[in-house]
Lab assay of single mutants.
Amino acid sequence: SSGAIIYTVELKRYGGPLGITISGTEEPFDPIIISSLTKGGLAERTGAIHIGDRILAINSSSLKGKPLSEAIHLLQMAGETVTLKIKKQTD
């Protein structure tokens, strides 16, 4: 049976990049997913974020019904501590 787990990851960026690339579309209900991780970057080092994971919220702002451009804007405005709500498929 296919299921999913949902969890929250807190990234402290200390002025540096998060080390993630996200992808999606401008269709508001398409998923926003992690499309790549910078090798040795902040997100990869947590061990908790993987390519293909879906981002449900950024700093408690839900991405439900929001296009990719809004998600990118939220990441850019997120500040030093970025909290990502992640949904991972478990097959």
Rank of each mutant, 00 (worst) to 15 (best):
T21N: 12
E44C: 06
K39E: 02
K64L: 10
S35Q: 13
S36T: 11
A43P: 03
G16D: 10
S60L: 02
M77G: 12
R13P: 14
T21Y: 07
L42N: 14
G52N: 06
I20S: 02
K66P: 01
L56G: 01
V9Y: 00
S62Y: 05
D53S: 04
E70D: 15
S2C: 09
I33N: 06
Y7W: 10
L42C: 15
S36G: 12
T46C: 09
I33L: 11
L42K: 05
I33V: 13
I58C: 01
I5L: 12
I55H: 04
R45I: 12
E44V: 03
T38E: 15
T25I: 02
A4L: 14
P67C: 10
S1M: 14
L11M: 15
E10D: 08
G19E: 05
R45W: 01
G41S: 10
P31W: 05
S2I: 13
E10G: 11
S60K: 13
E10Q: 08
S69F: 07
A57W: 01
K64Q: 07
M77W: 06
T8C: 05
T8D: 14
A4N: 15
P67L: 05
G24S: 12
S35M: 13
S23I: 08
P17K: 09
A57G: 08
A57D: 08
L37V: 14
I34N: 02
K39H: 13
A78C: 10
Q76F: 04
L11I: 13
T8S: 07
L11P: 02
G65P: 00
I34Y: 04
N59W: 01
T46F: 03
I20M: 11
T46Y: 04
G24F: 04
F29N: 14
S2G: 04
G52Y: 02
E10R: 06
G16E: 14
N59R: 00
S61E: 11
L11V: 12
G15A: 10
A78S: 11
S36N: 15
I6P: 06
S35C: 12
G3F: 10
I22R: 00
L84S: 02
T21Q: 14
Q76W: 06
G40K: 03
G24Q: 12
E44T: 06
I32D: 04
A78I: 04
R54Y: 09
L37K: 02
S36L: 02
G52H: 05
S23P: 03
I34V: 13
S60E: 10
E26C: 07
G41L: 02
K64G: 11
G24L: 07
S23Q: 13
S69T: 11
A4D: 13
G15S: 14
S1A: 04
G52R: 04
S23D: 15
K66L: 08
T38M: 11
I58A: 02
I33S: 05
L74F: 12
R45K: 11
N59L: 01
R45C: 08
E27T: 14
S69A: 12
Y7V: 09
S23N: 08
V82F: 15
S1P: 02
P31I: 04
E26M: 04
K12V: 11
R13Q: 04
G24V: 04
I22A: 00
R54A: 10
T46H: 14
E27P: 02
G41D: 01
K66Q: 07
N59G: 08
L74V: 15
A43D: 05
Y14T: 15
A43G: 06
I55R: 00
S1I: 13
G47L: 02
V82A: 12
Y14Q: 14
T46N: 15
I55Q: 00
S1K: 11
S36R: 10
Q76L: 05
S60V: 00
E44Q: 07
T46R: 03
F29V: 12
A4K: 13
T25S: 13
G24T: 12
L37Q: 04
P28C: 08
K66D: 01
L42Q: 14
K39Q: 11
E26L: 04
G41P: 03
L18S: 00
G52M: 03
T21L: 05
E27I: 13
H50Y: 04
E27C: 10
K66T: 09
A4S: 15
K12H: 08
D91N: 15
N59Q: 01
Y7I: 14
I6D: 15
P17I: 04
K64N: 11
L18P: 04
A78G: 12
K39V: 06
G19I: 01
E70W: 10
S60Q: 13
E44P: 01
P28S: 10
S61T: 15
S60F: 09
I55L: 14
A57L: 01
E44N: 03
P28I: 07
L56C: 08
I5R: 15
L68F: 09
T38H: 11
E26G: 11
P67Q: 09
I86T: 09
G19V: 00
P17Q: 15
V9T: 03
K64W: 10
T8N: 12
Y14D: 13
S60N: 14
L56D: 04
R45E: 12
K39Y: 04
T46A: 11
Q76P: 01
T46Q: 13
E44Y: 06
I55G: 02
M77Q: 10
I20Y: 01
G47K: 14
I5S: 14
I58G: 02
I22N: 01
D53E: 00
I32Y: 09
I34L: 01
S61A: 13
S35N: 10
I55T: 02
S36H: 11
T25L: 05
E10P: 05
D30T: 09
I32H: 05
I72T: 15
G16K: 11
S36C: 06
Y14W: 14
K64S: 11
Q76H: 13
L68M: 09
P17V: 01
R45L: 07
D30H: 13
V9Q: 01
Q76R: 13
A78W: 03
I22H: 00
I58F: 02
G65L: 05
S23K: 15
R13T: 09
G41Q: 05
A43E: 01
Q76C: 10
I55N: 00
D91H: 15
E10T: 12
S60P: 01
S23Y: 07
S61I: 11
K12A: 07
D30M: 07
K39W: 01
G3L: 06
T38V: 15
S2M: 14
R54S: 11
R45M: 07
E10H: 07
G41I: 01
R45H: 07
S2P: 08
S60C: 12
Y14K: 15
L56Q: 04
I6C: 04
G52A: 05
S60T: 13
G65W: 05
G41F: 03
S69P: 03
E80Q: 06
S1L: 08
G47Y: 01
I6E: 14
E44F: 05
A43F: 00
I20C: 06
N59A: 02
G40A: 07
I32C: 06
A43L: 01
E70I: 06
Y14R: 15
I5C: 09
I34M: 00
A78H: 03
K39R: 14
I55W: 00
D30L: 03
G40H: 12
L56I: 07
K39G: 10
K64D: 12
F29Y: 15
I58V: 07
R54E: 09
S35K: 09
N59M: 00
Q76N: 11
K66S: 06
I6A: 08
G24I: 07
L42P: 15
